[in-house]
Simulated assay, not measured.
Amino acid sequence: MRLHPLTSLAAAGSTAVITTAAASWPLSLAVIAGALGLSAMGGTLRRLLPAAAAVLVPLCLSLLVLHGLFFPEGQIILAQWGPARVTAEGLSFARERAAQVSAAVLALLVFSFSVSVPDLVAALSAKGVQGRFAFVLASTLTLLPAITSRLDRIRQAQEARGLVIRRGLLHRIAAFRLQAVPLVSALVEDAAIRGAALEARGFGGTGPRTSYRDVPDPVVERWLRILLVLAAAAAVAARLWLAGG
Rank of each mutant, 00 (worst) to 15 (best):
L144P: 01
P118H: 04
E96K: 14
P50C: 02
L48M: 11
R213T: 13
L170R: 15
Q179A: 13
A16D: 05
L169A: 13
L59C: 12
V110E: 08
V219A: 12
A157F: 00
G43P: 09
G128N: 03
F113E: 01
I226D: 00
R166F: 08
E221M: 00
F135T: 13
G168S: 06
R194C: 13
L63D: 03
H4W: 04
A22D: 01
Q156G: 08
L109W: 03
L240N: 04
L163T: 08
P218K: 05
R239S: 12
G68N: 06
G74E: 03
V86L: 15
I77H: 11
E159W: 07
V229R: 03
A53S: 10
H67P: 08
L106A: 04
Q158F: 06
H171L: 11
V188N: 11
L240T: 04
S125V: 14
S28W: 06
M1D: 10
P5Y: 03
A23K: 10
L163H: 05
R194T: 15
G68R: 07
R167P: 00
T20P: 02
G82A: 07
R95L: 15
A146V: 14
A191T: 13
V65M: 12
V105W: 08
R97K: 14
L143W: 08
G74A: 05
P182G: 10
V219K: 11
V110R: 14
V65H: 04
D152L: 09
A197G: 09
A134Q: 04
T87K: 01
L141W: 09
P50M: 07
R167G: 13
L48Q: 08
P72E: 07
A53L: 12
L141G: 07
R150E: 15
V17H: 07
L108H: 01
T15E: 05
F176K: 03
S102I: 04
L183E: 01
R166C: 04
P5S: 07
P50T: 06
V129F: 05
A180K: 01
L9I: 01
R209S: 11
F71M: 00
L48N: 06
A30N: 01
A84T: 06
A192P: 05
R47W: 13
F111R: 05
A11R: 09
A196F: 02
A23V: 15
F135Y: 15
A191S: 15
T148I: 10
L230A: 15
P50N: 10
A238T: 12
A237P: 00
A52S: 10
A192C: 08
S116E: 12
R155F: 08
I154L: 12
G205T: 09
G207T: 02
T20M: 14
A79N: 10
E73Q: 15
G162T: 02
A40M: 10
L6M: 06
L183Q: 02
P208G: 10
A231M: 00
I32G: 06
I165S: 03
I226S: 07
L143N: 05
H171C: 09
V101M: 14
D214V: 15
P83H: 11
V121E: 11
F111I: 00
W241R: 12
Q75V: 15
S24V: 15
L6W: 04
L3C: 00
T148Q: 15
L151E: 03
R209W: 11
A104N: 05
A33E: 05
A126P: 02
L109A: 04
A160S: 11
L151H: 07
L36V: 10
V55K: 01
G168A: 05
